[in-house]
Write a protein that binds this DNA or RNA. Structure first.
Length: 678
DNA sequence: GGGGTGGTAAACAGTA
DNA sequence: ATACTGTTTACCACCC
């Protein structure tokens, strides 16, 4: 603002280019890109402490207007009294001096003037302090610049004199001309930059310029520029800059002049995100000047304008052409509290999105790192199963997506069935639990392993989620999924690693557990084969122990038995059962709405076994085909991962809501009825 | 509190 | 000798 470039700058210009770079930097560099350089770190600090609020900004701006009037008088006095050296004024082209002086004499306010300001405008002590500090800095700066320009002028003068004395030396002439031209160009650039800020001010409503008013003099420098005009321009520039910086002080990426893509409608904020505006700061280069100049080349390049519609969030006003759009933008979306609030909202939105993006990136990186590590695991454990697992892993890696991570249970690849993913999606730490898990939730709560694995196949493959099933259930599933319904120990290992990312680590532990279970449970039968020993499943023995679990919920069994239709009653029973058992992991709060169908499948699967134990022959749910009819100890499943084919209970689920068909019942019905009645 | 179940660790033996 | 396979035991935890 008035503190801008010249205010506290300690610039020691050693060349005109340096000077103008400095100016250009302050005028063209968006607030979002500005780094707290020493030049104006003090300034920014003051800004942050004093002029952060918009109201304060406007207030100071008004004060600046007063100061500007005083400065105009001062400037005139300076011109009259001859601030410059008479020598320079003598032969120097008249146009250069005033311009340069104007350039070098920004709103330097004397303490007396400040007092006048105080008399006219009520300034708070803080504001006054700011102004005084600025004033001092400005005076310093002015002196430096004047000295600098003196030297420049003298140098030019000397060169001109040399030319005159030495006659026409085309080379030197050309050099001087080049210098002057460069200088003029730089000044012209400055004018353009000032014009940018004028336009910016216009857009922000801080400066009112009539359309027909030649407020943006673009005359060549040779035509001269009234110092007061330049001074005014400069003040506008600095004021505009202060506005920008003040507004941007809250957030590094906020540039009120350009990046205000905020949304008045919170629900639309994420959708309105302009891809161009999301470049975070790059748009800030899109200054009004460039708009005014470049939109003639690219008439519709404004990020807030497209397809004849104002893209200001929540606006969508139709603007026939770019000019009308600009008019609309300046009138409807001027710098006011509303727009500022919208920008702040958008700022927060962007912040959130950036945060989210950062998290997702980090997550992706972690996934890739993890998968990469896993892919190298076979080297450490050169086993056939690991080879297979590595192959599977590569596939999984290619399919891996951040959504598959357990942190994002709502994502597509995450387990669709909240029931089955309940224990899996709680936390990451829970998934990586190495210690003993005393209960396998799905086993306990009768979740069908086949359907769970089938539906959450990708999830289990990619996420190190411990499957909520006992080793016995998993082993059995692995064996039943095999074409021959028999697997070697190594093949079981292989299945574990292939199907579950969790079992790609701590191999010694879980393999020991697998062996332990194979030996411990009578349901696993070791069969000597030609190639060696294979393991099979004795479903009878396996089912013997399962009814125990559901026996704890006789009401559910009763409900099931009395139900002829599986849809609603089953779901109701399931919910009731959940309520009774107070299964926290299956609550909607933690996992979203559970898929009742899948829950029903869980119950159905378990009920198949339970009911077989209680009243297997009265399985009313399958009038045409009792579960026993579908029994086949070795059921070949070519597509074990297909939910419809993987296991009966799932089929029950999927079909139960449509028709009580048990064509696919083949899981627990495998065991003979007689043995179920045991 | 006891029994059943499940997970983990470990020892041990046999085998390739 | 080593790794794998298979058995067994022990301990602990959870649930009923």
């Amino acid at each position: 603002m008035f503190q801008c470039a010249f205010s506290s700058s300690v610039l020691q210009p050693h060349s005109t280019s340096c000077l103008f770079k400095h100016l250009f930097y302050h005028s063209a560099t968006p607030a979002s890109q500005k780094q707290p350089e020493p030049i104006y770190s003090k300034k920014t600090e003051i800004q942050r402490q004093t002029v952060r609020a918009h109201s304060v900004k406007l207030f100071i701006f008004s004060a600046l207007q007063v100061a500007r009037q005083l400065l105009l008088q001062q400037q005139q006095q300076q011109q009259v009294s001859g601030l410059k050296s008479p020598k320079r004024n003598d032969k120097q082209p008249a146009l250069q001096v005033p311009v340069s002086v104007a350039m070098m004499t920004p709103q330097v306010i004397t303490p007396q003037q400040m007092q006048q300001i105080l008399q006219q405008q009520v300034l708070s002590p803080q504001q006054l302090q700011v102004l005084l500090q600025q004033q001092q800095a400005l005076m310093l700066q002015q002196q430096q610049l004047q000295e600098f320009y003196k030297k420049q002028q003298e140098q030019l003068q000397l060169q001109l004199l040399q030319q005159q004395h030495a006659g026409k030396q085309p080379k030197e002439q050309q050099q001087v001309a080049t210098q002057q031209l460069a200088f003029q160009q730089q000044l012209l650039q400055m004018q353009q930059l000032q014009q940018q800020h004028l336009l910016s001010l216009q857009r922000q409503g801080l400066l009112t310029i009539q359309p027909g008013q030649p407020a943006l003099p673009l005359q060549p420098l040779a035509q001269g520029m009234i110092p007061t005009e330049l001074q005014q321009l400069w003040k506008e520039v600095t004021s505009a800059h202060s506005a920008e910086e003040t507004a941007g002080s809250n957030h590094s990426s906020l540039d009120l002049t350009t990046t205000c893509v905020s949304s008045s409608a919170p629900s639309k904020t994420s959708l309105i995100m302009n891809p161009h505006a999301s470049t975070n700061g790059q748009l800030s280069v899109h200054t009004p000047k460039r708009e005014s100049l470049s939109h003639e080349e690219h008439p519709h390049s404004h990020p807030l304008y497209g397809h004849g519609v104002c893209k200001w969030p929540g606006c969508e006003a139709v603007c026939e052409d770019f000019q009308s759009f600009l008019k609309h933008l300046n009138s409807e979306h001027a710098l006011d509290d509303r727009s500022t609030a919208q920008c702040r909202v958008q700022m927060q939105v962007v912040q959130q999105l950036e945060l989210q993006l950062a998290k997702d990136k980090e997550r992706l990186q972690a996934m890739m790192t993890h998968l990469h590590v896993k892919s190298t695991e076979p080297k450490a454990a050169p086993q056939p199963l690991n080879l297979v697992s590595s192959v599977t892993l590569s596939k999984s890696a290619s399919e891996a997506s951040p959504q598959s991570l357990p942190h994002t249970p709502t994502t597509p690849t995450a387990p669709i069935t909240p029931v089955t993913q309940g224990p899996s999606v709680i936390t990451t730490t829970s998934m990586h639990t190495v210690g003993p898990i005393r209960r396998r939730y799905s086993d306990k709560y009768n979740v069908p392993i086949s359907s769970d694995i089938a539906q959450n196949q990708e999830f289990y493959k990619n996420a190190e989620v411990r499957p909520p099933f006992t080793y016995a259930s998993l082993i059995r599933q692995a064996i039943l999924e095999s074409p021959e319904k028999q697997l070697t120990l190594n093949e079981i290992y292989n299945w574990f690693t292939r199907m579950f990312a969790y079992f790609r680590r701590n191999a010694a532990t879980w393999k020991n557990a697998v062996r332990h279970n194979l030996s411990l449970h009578k349901c696993f039968v070791r069969v000597e084969n030609v190639k060696g020993a294979v393991w099979t499943v004795d479903e009878v023995e396996f089912q013997k122990r399962r009814p125990q679990k559901i026996s704890g919920n006789p009401s559910l069994i009763k409900n099931m038995q009395s139900s002829h239709a599986y849809c609603t009653p089953l779901n109701a029973a399931l919910q009731a059962s959940m309520a009774e058992n107070s299964i926290p992991l299956y609550t909607t709060a933690s996992m979203g709405n559970p898929t009742l169908g899948n829950l029903a499948s869980a119950i159905r699967e378990e009920l198949n076994g339970a009911m077989e134990h209680t009243n297997s022959n009265e399985s009313d749910s399958s009038p045409g085909r009792s579960p026993m009819q579908a029994v086949h100890p070795v059921h070949v499943k070519e597509e074990p991962l297909d939910p419809e084919e993987a296991e009966g209970p799932l089929s029950l689920v999927t079909t139960a809501n449509h028709s009580p068909d048990f064509d696919h019942d083949r899981d627990y019905e495998d065991e003979p009825v007689n043995e179920d009645m045991e």
